[in-house]
Write a protein that binds this DNA or RNA. Structure first.
Lengths: 212, 212
DNA sequence: CATTGAATGGGGGTATTCCCTGAATTTTTC
DNA sequence: GAAAAATTCAGGGAATACCCCCATTCAATG
């Protein structure tokens, strides 16, 4: 909407060389856009931004060392004016929410088309939030009750782990130097939290939630 | 467009537009290489190859409709001379093995550097097989005996499934119209086959083997 | 046709889990 | 410093799983 003649500095934080190449190649074809820098990890990008601000940051989430979510937080702490667009393959609801809560101005999947990508740039520059339609589906899915994984205490995680390894209550008690009754209490609480009524299904659910 | 006799025709099968762009951009900078076509799914690529062969196919595995593994098989069935390089993010041993058994001449991860990518091309053209070092680690992981999954009978699979769903022996017996003793026999045999001594670890192992 | 594997079933006994109610102590959090 | 959460422990009883032994039937396989 706002055809500015001034160039818009963009930086890319992404550790896949080929993907960076593609992104640059597309951005270079866009008027007003200039790629001011590319970085393979967050720390370097943050240092760069402290020297000279950019208008937009394209940010991957899976990065070596520092997570893209933390990088986003750091960027926003540095300068709220810098627009951050997450560009990643993560489609898990929790990841998306984490990213948006960290202040991201957009969330695109890596399979976004060239056109959508370019449109996205102008949208965020107009203070509009953007996201792939598929993601909105995931995020605001109606009937789907993802039933978030229960939050476990440290002790419960230990016991869960040991149950999964086939240890009996008595064996767990010996190993952790606590009474069998205590172990039973934890097992009982675990089953309640996972809404199951025996150990086999407890283990199954725990694995489904990626907790084993 | 008739390519020069020295030029090496390459095609790309990949559904991520940005990544395709990057790949093209890099390949264009390589002498002798010409990108003869890019496709977002396997079927179209196969049709193209029936018209005019390419020297190298860069092939993603996660594709709409047809899996990259099947595409690879089809390409090799069409013309064994066409070199196929898998270019993907999959690091699961099973996927890698599937791909190589399907005749792939190389397996690269998407985070491969530009240099490695270019070197790879000449390597496969010299009939050398190539793969990221990290992948060799995964594939020939140290001493780990994969311990093949036990072969289960139909009935055992049913009972395993039900145990995973939290059903008790009595409940399973009622559901399958057999005696509880029979169910116990099957459970016992299952535990023996999986080399475990109780149901929680039975479920865990079964899931590890992808049988639940 | 003999052998093997699969599925079925039994008896008896022990081990373990599961359920309920209740409570003391410590750690974390606000 | 009070409130909430986490960790610890107890007794007793019912349900379930686990472990031996064993046997019959049926279908496929050689």
């Amino acid at each position: 909407m706002t055809p500015a003649t001034t160039s818009i500095p963009v930086i890319i934080v992404e550790d896949h060389a080929i993907f960076v190449e593609g992104l640059c190649s597309i951005l270079k074809q866009v008027e007003d856009i200039v790629v001011a820098g590319t970085f393979t990890e967050g720390r370097a990008a943050l240092e760069f931004l402290q020297q000279q601000p950019a208008a937009i940051v394209f940010l991957d989430i899976s990065l070596p060392e520092m997570s893209g979510i933390d990088v986003c937080k750091a960027i926003k702490a540095l300068n709220k004016e810098i627009k951050v667009i997450a560009l990643t393959n993560h489609t898990e609801k929790s990841v998306i929410i984490d990213m948006l809560q960290s202040g991201a101005d957009g969330y695109l999947l890596k399979n976004t088309s060239r056109n959508d990508l370019v449109t996205a740039i102008y949208q965020v520059l107009n203070d509009q939030f953007l996201m792939n339609p598929e993601l909105q589906q995931i995020l605001f899915s109606p009937g789907k009750k993802p039933k978030k994984a229960p939050r476990l205490t440290r002790r419960e995680q230990e016991i869960l782990q040991l149950v999964g390894e086939g240890a009996t209550t008595a064996a767990i008690a010996r190993q952790l130097f606590i009474s069998p009754q205590t172990v039973e209490t934890h097992r009982h609480n675990l089953m309640q939290k996972f809404e199951v009524s025996n150990s086999p299904s407890l283990i199954k659910k725990a694995i489904e939630y990626g907790m084993l």
